[in-house]
Design a protein around this nucleic acid. Structure first.
Lengths: 212, 212
DNA sequence: CATTATCCATACATGAATGTATGTAAAGAG
DNA sequence: CTCTTTACATACATTCATGTATGGATAATG
């Protein structure tokens, strides 16, 4: 029972891994700290040493995972000045592919969307998601606005409406996949839906002038 | 303390009302049966008389509420043989309006989507939603297939793709509204997004022939 | 090498929630 | 008007999860 600092970090990671799996399987509320500790091969003593309580453990798990919002923001930050709609579709599809390939991230997202109840205790957790969403909305908003300025949007959509609908579509696709991963392939059907939507969004064939 | 059968039914309803509010405010897991009983103005004895446990109470609450899926199915059942896409948009927008006006239904849906963890215990509850979704999908599928047969769909979409995207969009809009009702008006922006999407879906202007 | 701080297991105390058992007053049935 | 059943309230037993306190073994530090 000799524990160096590196060892301690490893057990901390093991606890976070166990929390991911346990939360995913039993839900956050029904997962006791003893369940998690046992799954990690330690006792509650270790859990309480590294984390103050279950909420803190949950937040640490959320922080360790790379949330797709941050991922998207980073990608959107350094995109060339291409067709903004094509950029949007590419970035989201890229995100889909990456998440589908990462079991851990898939688990965390399933926990955040399907396996936890957002109440007063979880206010911090929800706040972080909202902040990430907010900065993401700003970036998407700029792209859709640019598309609108260049006359690339179908006349049925204002930039704000297009952004809202796109956001809803992506979220809906995502949630559907998380609910029934075996019934749906995110990289195939998910990307297809996103791309088809972007294509009809950009189908401004009502105006005669087609500059590009 | 005289209880006739009608009185008993009333207290049962009061318990269900209290469960709705308590689940909505504190989440399902953190709501104890004592919380609910107190909110209903009774004791746990009454709750245990009417319901075997919390899961049964939850299921009874879910059953009492008119789920939007059933609502939609009923509407779709007796629609004239109009433009299928217009029918779809009308029915969904009508559902949006009705839910936005019904606080109780809004609470129940917020519970089902945001305030409960779907784990093995809740398998029954999830199963009912899935069944309702399934029969709904069949009806929507028929309409989108009809639209495809009549050449009403934008060539970017197959009927199945259109249906999946539409479903995702509606769900995403719905969820977004439930998460932040003050930031979004379901009857205004929600309906606008749905209608705009349906409009671009039906924009099959690539073919020269426009029969209708 | 002695000391201290780290890392974790074990033990204990507490409260909260559950399920059940019992009591009971009225309603309903005959 | 009895008798049984209904519709609860109350009381009890038990389990479970939490938080904390303590102990101990080693690593880090000087």
């Amino acid at each position: 029972m000799r524990k160096t600092k590196a060892d301690a970090e490893r057990t901390r990671d093991q606890i976070l891994d166990a929390a991911e799996i346990t939360f995913f399987e039993r839900g956050v509320a029904r997962s006791s700290l003893d369940d998690i500790a046992r799954a990690a091969g330690v006792t509650r003593g270790a859990v309480y040493w590294h984390f103050a309580n279950k909420v803190e453990l949950f937040l640490a798990m959320q922080d360790r995972a790379w949330l797709p919002q941050e991922d998207l923001c980073e990608k959107l930050a350094d995109t060339p000045d291409r067709d903004p709609l094509a950029t949007v579709a590419d970035v989201v599809c890229d995100m889909f592919r990456r998440i589908a390939a990462d079991e851990s991230q898939k688990r965390v997202l399933a926990i955040l969307l399907l396996r936890c109840e957002y109440t007063d205790e979880m206010a911090d957790a929800l706040q972080r998601r909202k902040e990430a969403d907010c900065s993401l909305d700003a970036r998407f908003g700029a792209l859709f606005a640019a598309a609108g300025d260049r006359g690339l949007l179908h006349p049925a959509f204002t930039p704000a409406l297009a952004q809202g609908a796109f956001r809803a579509l992506v979220f809906g696709v995502f949630r559907r996949w998380l609910e029934a991963p075996e019934e749906m392939d995110l990289t195939a059907q998910g990307c297809a839906m996103v791309q088809a939507f972007i294509r009809v969004l950009g189908d401004a064939s009502h105006e005669k002038a087609s500059s590009a």
